[in-house]
Design a protein around this nucleic acid. Structure first.
Length: 725
DNA sequence: GAGCACTGC
C-alpha cells in the first residue's frame, strides 16, 4: 500500500518534470543562469506561456544550492559571485502585483520542486493577512507591497540573496516603488561588501571593524526583473544598462480585425460584432470576451444581448464580470456553457490581467478603459474613459489565443491603433504620492526628491505631499519625520487616515476610528444602489461605524445571511473585519501608545456623566476624523434657494476652492439635496463637511461625507487654518 | 434627482 503510494508520487513527479522540460524557457536555462550569475541585475522579457514565473525562481534557487555545495569543496569560487550565507542572503523572493497570483504560483512551484514538503516548507508565500512560510522556506512569493513593508523593518532585505520582480511592465505603484527601493538596496549592499573586503585586506583593524566582521553584511543582491512587453529599455537604463534576455512564449495565433471607419457608438458596435461572430462562426466552439469600461454599460449591453440572443444559434449565454459584483456571480464566468449556447462575457479590464477565463476564442475590444488620475495642483482625482495603450490592446488580444487560435475584433481603425500611446502611464505618475513619501521618510530616505524612481514623479507632486505631511504634523520644521510621523508610517493606510488614528487616542475613540477606517478601505460595502441600513444623522462615517457594529453582533454563521438581507457585501465586511484587526495589532506595536492611554483614563475620571459622554461620542469621533481630513473640508455655498428645491447643494472646498457636490452614494445626499438646509436636516448648526475623497466623473463629487463644526478645523488643522477663522 | 475601472499594504 505504502509502496503503491510511493510509485504514484514518483509518477506524479515525473509528469511534472516532463511538463517543465517542455516549457519554452527550459531550452534557455543554462544561458539564463549564466547571465544571472554574471550580472547583478538581469531583465527577462518572457512572453505569455514561456514559463518564466514558475521556472526562473527554481533555476535561481537550484543554482544557489549547487554553489553552496561547490563552496564546501572549494572555498573561493562563489565568494565573490553568488554567495549564499547561513543566515543572510539565503532566500529567494518573488513578487507579484496581485495576491491570487502570489498564492497560486507558490502552490505550483511547491508541487514542482518535489521536496516532498507542503506549501510553507521550502516554498511559501506572504500576502496581507496570510503568511504561509516557515524557518525552512527558501523561495517565498510576495505581493510587491508586502515586500515593501518588509523593507521597512529590514532596510537591506538581508534575508534575500536574489529578488525576482514579476510583471514589472504593469508599472503599478508598488512595483515601481519596490524597484527604486531595490536599486538603493543593491547600492548599499555593494558598499558593505567593499567595506568587508577592505577588512580582509587590512589586518590592522580597529575594534569597530572587527565587530562588523563578526556579523557579516548581506551579500550583493541579485535582481531579476521579469516583464512581458517588448519595451524594456527603460528598465535597463535604470539598472545601469543591464542585459535584457528574450524568452519566446507559447500561445496560439490571433487574427486581428479593425473597423474601416471610426464608430462612435461602441456599445452598438459591440452588439453587432457579437451577433456577427455568433452567426459567422456558428459551427466553431468558442466563447466571446468583450472589453467595456464600466458596470453601467456592461449591464445595459447585457440586457440587449440577452434579448437579441434568445433566438440565435448557438443561443447566447451572457455573463457579466466586474469587480464590484458579488463573488458568487463572478464565479459564473468559470462555468462551462451549456451545449448549443455560446458564452458571451462582458467585462471591465478585470479580465485583462486579474482573471483568466477559459474557453475564450473571440475578443471584442472597444479600445477604451476607465482610468483614475490625480492632479497634484488641485488635489482632485478624475475617473475618465480614455483610450487604452497599445500594450493593453495586445494584452486584450492575447486573451483569445490561450487555448486555440483565436480572433480579435477591434472596434477602432488601424490608424487609431497606431495613434495609441505605447505604454500605460505608470501609476506613480498619476497618483497621490503622500503615502509613498511617508514610507520613504520612514525608510530613512530624507531627500525624497532624489530617490531613484524609474520615472520621476513631478517635483510639484512630491512637494505637495511633503506639505500635506507637514500640515498633518508628521514632519518637523526641517522636514524630518517626527514621532507622530513615525507612528503614522506603521499603518497600511494613507497618511490622512493614519493621522485620525493618532488623534483618536486623545479623543478616546480609537476602536471606533479604526472600524471606520477599515470600512473606508473596503470598496463597495453596499451592494444595491439604495442603502438599506440605518443612516446616521451626521453622515457616512457614523453610518459605516454603526453598520460595522451591527455586523459584529451577528453570530459568525449568520453573518453572510445578515449581509444579504441588509444589502451589504459580505466580502467587504469580512475584509473590513480583517483590516480592523490588523490596524489594532499595529497600534499594539506602537511603544508608548498605552502610556498615553493611561493618562487619558486619568482624565476620564474628571469627565461628566456617562450619558453626556455617550452623546459626545459622535463628536469625538468626527473630531478625530477632522484631525486627519481637514484638508478635505468644504463649506456649503449660500445660494438663494428659492427655486432650487430638489437640486443637490453645492459645496466649496476651503483649500483650493473647488466647487463640488455630495456623491449620490452618500447617506447625506438626500439631506443636502432636499429643500432643507444642512442645519435643519442634520440638527447641527453647521454647514461644514469633511469627506474622504474628491473625484471627478461627470461632476466633481465628494465621497464619504460627514458634517463637522467649523471651529474644529482651526483646532486640528492649525498648520493650514491657523490664522484665519 | 442621480452614480463608483482595477489592484495593493
Amino acid at each position: 500500500m505504502v509502496e503503491e503510494q510511493k510509485q504514484k508520487q514518483q509518477r506524479f513527479r515525473e509528469t511534472i518534470q516532463r511538463q517543465r522540460e517542455k516549457l519554452p524557457i527550459y531550452a534557455s536555462k543554462d544561458e539564463l543562469v549564466a547571465h544571472i550569475e554574471q550580472n547583478e541585475t538581469v531583465i527577462i522579457l518572457g512572453e505569455t506561456g514561456s514559463g518564466k514565473t514558475t521556472q526562473i525562481p527554481q533555476f535561481v534557487y537550484e543554482r544557489m544550492m549547487t554553489m553552496k555545495k561547490e563552496n564546501k569543496n572549494n572555498n573561493t569560487e562563489f565568494e565573490s559571485n553568488f554567495p549564499p550565507r547561513k543566515e543572510k542572503g539565503t532566500m529567494v523572493a518573488v513578487t507579484q502585483p496581485r495576491r491570487v497570483a502570489a498564492v497560486s504560483v507558490a502552490k505550483r512551484v511547491s508541487q514542482e520542486i518535489g521536496d516532498g514538503g507542503k506549501l510553507g516548507d521550502l516554498v511559501g508565500y506572504g500576502i496581507r493577512f496570510d503568511d504561509c512560510s516557515s524557518e525552512q522556506t527558501r523561495i517565498k512569493f510576495f505581493t510587491d507591497g508586502m515586500l515593501l513593508r518588509e523593507a521597512l523593518n529590514d532596510p537591506l532585505l538581508s534575508r534575500y540573496g536574489a529578488i525576482l520582480v514579476d510583471e514589472a511592465h504593469e508599472r503599478t505603484l508598488q512595483t515601481d516603488f519596490l524597484l527604486g527601493t531595490l536599486k538603493a538596496i543593491q547600492e548599499k549592499r555593494r558598499m558593505n561588501i567593499l567595506e568587508k573586503d577592505d577588512d580582509n585586506d587590512n589586518n590592522n583593524n580597529n575594534n569597530k571593524r572587527k565587530k562588523r566582521k563578526k556579523r557579516p553584511p548581506p551579500p550583493p543582491l541579485k535582481l531579476i526583473i521579469m516583464s512581458a512587453t517588448l519595451d524594456a529599455s527603460s528598465f535597463s537604463d535604470f539598472f545601469d544598462a543591464c542585459p535584457i534576455i528574450y524568452i519566446k512564449g507559447r500561445t496560439f495565433p490571433v487574427e486581428t480585425y479593425y473597423l474601416k471607419e471610426p464608430e462612435e457608438d461602441y456599445i452598438d458596435a459591440a452588439l453587432c460584432s457579437v451577433m456577427q461572430i455568433n452567426e459567422d462562426e456558428k459551427d466553431i466552439k468558442g466563447d466571446v470576451l468583450v472589453f467595456l469600461t464600466g458596470q453601467e454599460e456592461i449591464e445595459s449591453l447585457g440586457k440587449l444581448l440577452t434579448q437579441r440572443g434568445k433566438d440565435t444559434y448557438p443561443q447566447l449565454n451572457v455573463v457579466l464580470l466586474f469587480a464590484a459584483m458579488p463573488a458568487e456571480e463572478q464565479m459564473k464566468v468559470f462555468e462551462e456553457t451549456p451545449k448549443g449556447t455560446r458564452k458571451i462575457v462582458l467585462a471591465t479590464n478585470i479580465a485583462e490581467t486579474s482573471l483568466t477565463i477559459p474557453g475564450i476564442r473571440y475578443v471584442v475590444d472597444t479600445g477604451l478603459t476607465k482610468m483614475r488620475t490625480f492632479k497634484a495642483k488641485s488635489g482632485v482625482e478624475e475617473l475618465k474613459v480614455v483610450p487604452i495603450a497599445r500594450s493593453q490592446a495586445t494584452q486584450r488580444c492575447g486573451r483569445a489565443g490561450r487555448e486555440a487560435p483565436g480572433k480579435c475584433y477591434r472596434l477602432y481603425t488601424e490608424d487609431t491603433m497606431f495613434s495609441l500611446a505605447e505604454q500605460v502611464v505608470p501609476e506613480l505618475l498619476r497618483t497621490n504620492l503622500a503615502g509613498v513619501v511617508l514610507m520613504l521618510k520612514a525608510m530613512g530616505v530624507n531627500d525624497v526628491l532624489t530617490f531613484p524612481f524609474i520615472d520621476k514623479p513631478s517635483t510639484e507632486g512630491l512637494l505637495r505631499s511633503l506639505e500635506l505631511l507637514y500640515s498633518l504634523g508628521a514632519l518637523d520644521d526641517k522636514g524630518e519625520l517626527n514621532k507622530i510621523g513615525r507612528q503614522m508610517s506603521k499603518f497600511p493606510l494613507e497618511p490622512m487616515a493614519c493621522k485620525c488614528i493618532i488623534e483618536s487616542r486623545n479623543q478616546k475613540c480609537t476602536e471606533e476610528i479604526v472600524a471606520i477606517l477599515a470600512m473606508l478601505s473596503t470598496e463597495n460595502v453596499f451592494v444595491g444602489r439604495t442603502i438599506q441600513v440605518a443612516k446616521h444623522k451626521t453622515g457616512d462615517h457614523m453610518t459605516l461605524l454603526n453598520l460595522y457594529a451591527d455586523y459584529s453582533k451577528v453570530s459568525r454563521n449568520g453573518k453572510k445571511k445578515w449581509c444579504n438581507s441588509h444589502g451589504v457585501s459580505f466580502r467587504a465586511m469580512n475584509k473590513a473585519e480583517k483590516i480592523k484587526e490588523q490596524l489594532s495589532r499595529s497600534i499594539g506595536h506602537i511603544e508608548d501608545w498605552d502610556e498615553d492611554e493611561e493618562k487619558d483614563e486619568e482624565r476620564e475620571g474628571e469627565e461628566k456623566e456617562e450619558k453626556q459622554e455617550k452623546e459626545n461620542k459622535s463628536v469625538r469621533i468626527r473630531k478625530a476624523l477632522t484631525a486627519g481630513f481637514f484638508m478635505n473640508a468644504a463649506k456649503k455655498e449660500s445660494i438663494s434657494d428659492g427655486s432650487g428645491g430638489g437640486s443637490n447643494s453645492m459645496f466649496v472646498t476651503l483649500i483650493g476652492g473647488n466647487r463640488l457636490f455630495v456623491h449620490p452614494s452618500s447617506t447625506t445626499f438626500h439631506k443636502f439635496s432636499s429643500r432643507e438646509t444642512a442645519k435643519e436636516a442634520v440638527g447641527i448648526s453647521s454647514s461644514y463637511i469633511i469627506f474622504n475623497e474628491l473625484i471627478r466623473t461627470n461632476k466633481l463629487y465628494a465621497r464619504d461625507v460627514s458634517v463637522i463644526e467649523g471651529e474644529w478645523l482651526t483646532e486640528f488643522g492649525s498648520r493650514v487654518f491657523g490664522t484665519q477663522r
